[in-house]
């Protein structure tokens, strides 16, 4: 019973696959973050029009969506690991899992609205 409730909220229900997804999404997020940091550092006195044009670029939209999906999956696996490690009460843990899931989905929808509104 307890074991099943531990597994139902894991991303893939398979520890090795979760581990792999955690690494792949980490690399995607790292590349994206380094790109954004590089862009901001190389554009001193960044203005709205350059910034807007960057994110309106179709390639950048794909890159940004890739990052956001990766961030969501990465955060999901990370938070799942932490909750299952530290929260002993199954019912309390389930609440944390559900709240995290709903928050990540809401953030994702919000992000799509921001990027596709351009």
């Amino acid at each position: 019973m307890v074991k099943k409730l531990t597994n139902i909220f894991s991303l893939s229900g398979n520890g090795l696959r979760d581990w792999m997804v955690q690494r792949v999404t980490a690399v995607i997020a790292a590349v994206y973050l380094l790109f954004i940091i590089g862009y901001i550092l190389s554009h001193t006195n960044l203005n709205y029009f350059d910034w807007q044009a960057l994110f309106a670029n179709p390639w950048m939209k794909v890159f940004s969506m890739l990052f956001l999906i990766s961030l969501g999956l990465h955060a999901w696996i990370g938070m799942w690991t932490i909750f299952t490690d530290y929260i002993k009460s199954v019912s309390v843990r389930l609440v944390f899992h559900v709240v995290t899931l709903v928050a990540l989905l809401a953030y994702f929808i919000w992000a799509v609205q921001i990027l596709w509104g351009l």
């Binding site: 029009f49 910034w51 992000a111 921001i114 990027l115």
Partner: peptide
């Protein structure tokens, strides 16, 4: 996300 929305919203 709030900062991203504001930065891309309008000048």
């Amino acid at each position: 996300l709030w900062m991203l929305a504001l930065s891309l919203g309008s000048p």
